[in-house]
Simulated scan of single mutants.
Amino acid sequence: MMAGLRERKKEQTRQRIAETALRLFAERGYDAVTVNEIAEAAGVAKVTLFSYFPGKESLVLDQIKDDYAAVVRNRPEGVPPLAALREHCRGIARRSAQAPVETLLTRVQVIATSPALMSKVHQTDVTEREELVAALEAAMPDAGVVPRLMAAQIIAVITTLQETFFQRLFQGEPLENAGRLLEEEVEVAFDLLERGLTSTERAGS
């Protein structure tokens, strides 16, 4: 029981630090706020902050990272990589309908207005894609360039789904509706990935 209490307190501290940082970044801009100021405002020592977040950018970006390579590596036996990724994205879509809208939009706005964070997002995307390539290559040995092509398409599709979801929220779409549409579009996206574009083109001709 004591271990559980300690974990809850640690999570509460982590959450308080992250929320404080996001508030200060939104008020003054990412570049104008120092780690010392965040620690002081959150009521923790600087060393404590770094024990939860390894760098300033992680105060914002840790909440948006996703390990797609791990989804592929840890999928149940007999489940194809795309099926595992589809189920993972279904879960993300379901949880999105319960997320705090203001926090989501504030985080996106802070990232979008900071060249440093946008650069870090791009670097993270590249890293995630390369890790996914490696996971797919392990799942599909001797498949040549196919895993790399698949990873590029998967990351592009997921990024587009996320961007569309946030655009709807910024345009005033209620979270429940935006979440429902995201769930539907996850299915459309993975149908396209699994079946290819040709069948869709034929259906629309």
Rank of each mutant, 00 (worst) to 15 (best):
F170W: 08
T13S: 10
G78H: 05
I38N: 04
V157P: 11
E183W: 14
A178C: 11
T124D: 10
R168I: 01
G91H: 02
T103R: 06
A41S: 08
P54W: 12
G78T: 00
Q98H: 01
Y30N: 02
V79N: 01
A203I: 06
E137I: 01
G172S: 13
F170T: 07
I158C: 13
L132I: 09
Q63W: 10
L61P: 03
N36C: 00
R107N: 01
E183I: 12
I158D: 09
L22R: 06
G196H: 03
V44C: 11
F25H: 09
T164R: 12
V60M: 13
A156G: 14
V186F: 12
V72H: 03
C89E: 14
P100S: 03
A93L: 09
E57L: 00
F25V: 06
A26G: 11
E19S: 14
E27N: 02
D125K: 15
R180V: 04
I111W: 11
A112N: 06
V33F: 08
V145Y: 14
K10G: 13
L105E: 10
E102N: 15
L132N: 04
D67P: 00
Q171V: 09
A41C: 02
G43D: 11
E201V: 15
L104H: 04
L117D: 02
Q123L: 13
R107G: 02
D191E: 14
N74D: 15
A18C: 11
G204H: 13
G78P: 00
I38H: 01
E11R: 08
S51V: 04
I111D: 04
T200C: 04
L161R: 05
K46I: 10
I154C: 14
K46G: 04
M140G: 09
L59I: 01
P80D: 13
V72P: 02
D67N: 10
K56F: 00
A156C: 14
G172L: 12
L85V: 05
Y68I: 04
L49A: 08
K9A: 15
A138M: 07
P54K: 01
S114R: 02
Q12I: 14
P174V: 05
Y52Q: 04
M118Q: 15
L104K: 05
